[in-house]
């Protein structure tokens, strides 16, 4: 089994830099002022401190879990159960045309 890896390549014991927080904010499309970044950095470092404490516990021989509940998921039969409700869903959309949701232009 491949061990679960921290997703941001941040070593838990290390404290976050301002650049780390800026990067996370950018990836999450959050606009943050310098003071908000500083507040978030302190809060996140607090959380990482707690994680560091947990990391200190000896877990030798304990199988890593990917979910807090030790259960397997139940499956659905492959049946179409949903009908077309486009009108209802699009009633709350800001802009719609020819059945499409319109969003600001994206170019790749």
């Amino acid at each position: 089994m491949i061990p679960y890896q921290p997703c941001l390549n941040i070593v838990f014991a290390m404290s976050l830099s301002t650049q780390d927080v800026e990067k996370v904010a950018r990836l999450a499309r959050l606009a943050m002022s310098p003071s908000e970044i500083e507040t978030s950095r302190n809060q996140l470092n607090g959380i990482f401190g707690l994680i560091a404490e947990m990391q200190a516990v000896n877990t030798d021989g304990v199988e890593p879990m990917s979910h807090s509940q030790d259960l397997a998921q139940r499956l659905r039969e492959d049946k179409v159960t949903e009908s077309n409700q486009r009108e209802a869903f699009q009633a709350v959309a800001p802009q719609v045309e020819q059945g499409l949701f319109l969003v600001p232009k994206v170019i790749e």
């Binding site: 659905r76 492959d78 049946k79 179409v80 159960t81 949903e82 949701f101």
Partner: peptide, 23 residues
């Protein structure tokens, strides 16, 4: 499959836009 991977909406090709887009 007849339905989508995580919900019961149809996967049929060529339907009118967003008529097979459930919640």
């Amino acid at each position: 499959t007849n339905s989508k991977i995580f919900c019961g909406a149809s996967t049929a090709f060529g339907a009118e836009p967003n008529t097979q887009a459930d919640a």
